[in-house]
Design a protein around this nucleic acid. Structure first.
Lengths: 242, 242
DNA sequence: AGCAAGAGGTGTACGGCGTACACCTTCAGG
DNA sequence: CCTGAAGGTGTACGCCGTACACCTCTTGCT
């Protein structure tokens, strides 16, 4: 208690606290509004203080990714590689889903962080343990791409979004009609799904469904190739389809 | 010629020239180094002059995307929807491949540009013309995701990249050994492909192969679902795999 | 007890960015 | 000849990341 001279002493910063505060701030204000200055203010500290804990902003972003990736469940062995991988990827999805910026940040890292490498390594290991060849596993990983992280890669965040998030259905119908004039096929598809409304303004798609649909399409395809003993030299005969 | 008072009059800027110069500049210096000021300098003009032709930087980026998307070949009807879509997507790939920033810019657009909508609409139309239901087409589009643009979405741009682009194979072997200590499965796969070397430092993968592998996996999967008359209500029985 | 060292926090400053706003020039059409 | 609009300019503001010199505690050794 002799330590507590004057005002209560602030517990000192550390890398962990900085990273967690950064994740928090990005969740609140969006990744493009995340600044070293803003983060410092959140932590009640002067901007330059952060540089005692992270080398620069890029490394801060690296660290933020590792925080999220660290929350993915460890692999649990299932009956078969396919459902084991599936479960793991869905766990990644759970870990990253609340952080819409994660996808973009991961994709802009110029070199992978240790946590990222560890996760990728373990997923590869799951394929290999299931008996897939290194060759096929390699291509399967590429085919999954950023879907390994549980992202549905949106073509664009929202449809035109003509009128703001009005729940007036007649306005929505009007907007759809305008869209249909120029882009009839898009309109047809946008109209098809009945607008499940849990996400932001009228994305109109069940994100979880779309994700699992695509994931299963890929995993099933890989499984079929595996069963037929595929190797990359099989390729040429398919290549000349066009 | 009476016009040419004093120094040669500069032909006035227009939106088109601004956008093309921006694409050029981004190709040369990278998207993150593209600035309104630098672009203005390239065009021999003061920064604020650009704002007579584009509303702001976001709209500049929108326009740049539309320039590239406008270079995708129009649809050509083939024997079947699958090879028609395949050819179209590979055309998109050709159009965007020389602009490594395109993928990131497209993904950060907050609302789609007309050119983007037109392309998407036409691809949807190709599926529909092939007899696929609106339902299945919708999910197929989501499953393709940004692969519609011809991108292989890299998990990360390059492996750890320990020593710079040395062509010293013994150093590479050493780096690989170090990697293998912590991430044995990644090392195995990185070692597998014999390093085709046409791309930047040792990505070690044939990008075109990976892309077409994934594309065919998805298209074949969709075709199979189509043939068996799939609808989204088929789903629940699969959903409980885990 | 005295002190050196280092970890952590501060303050100032620089160069770059996007862009608001007021201004000037040029020129086509009435 | 005049007007008005289109296109280009110059200045200025507030934000950003971060280099660098400095201060202030805490800790451990003598």
């Amino acid at each position: 208690m002799a330590q507590e001279t004057g005002a209560a002493r602030r517990t000192p910063l550390n890398r962990e606290r900085v990273l967690r505060a950064a994740v928090d701030l990005a969740d609140r204000v969006g990744i493009e509004a995340l600044s070293m200055r803003g983060l410092a203010q959140d932590l009640g500290v002067v901007p330059m203080a952060l540089y005692k804990h992270v080398a620069n902003k890029e490394q801060l972003l690296d660290g933020m990714v590792d925080v999220l990736v660290g929350e993915i469940d460890p692999p649990a062995d299932g009956p078969d590689w396919k459902s084991a991988v599936r479960r793991r990827v869905l766990s990644a999805r759970r870990a990253l889903l609340g952080h819409p910026w994660a996808s973009r940040v991961i994709e802009t890292r110029t070199s992978p962080t240790p946590g990222v490498l560890a996760y990728l390594d373990s997923v590869i290991g799951m394929f290999r343990a299931g008996g897939l060849s290194a060759d096929l596993t390699h291509h399967a990983m590429h085919a999954l791409g950023s879907r390994i992280w549980g992202f549905t890669q949106e073509l664009f965040p929202a449809p035109p979004a003509t009128a703001a998030d009005t729940s007036d259905t007649s306005e929505q119908a009007a907007a759809l009609a305008a869209l249909a004039a120029h882009y009839p096929h898009i309109a047809e598809i946008a109209a098809g799904r009945p607008h499940d409304g849990d996400s932001v303004v009228g994305a109109g798609c069940d994100d979880a469904f779309e994700f699992e649909f695509a994931l299963d399409l890929l995993l099933d395809g890989v499984e079929r190739l595996h069963q037929r003993g595929w190797t990359s030299v099989d390729r040429p005969q398919e290549e000349r389809t066009w």
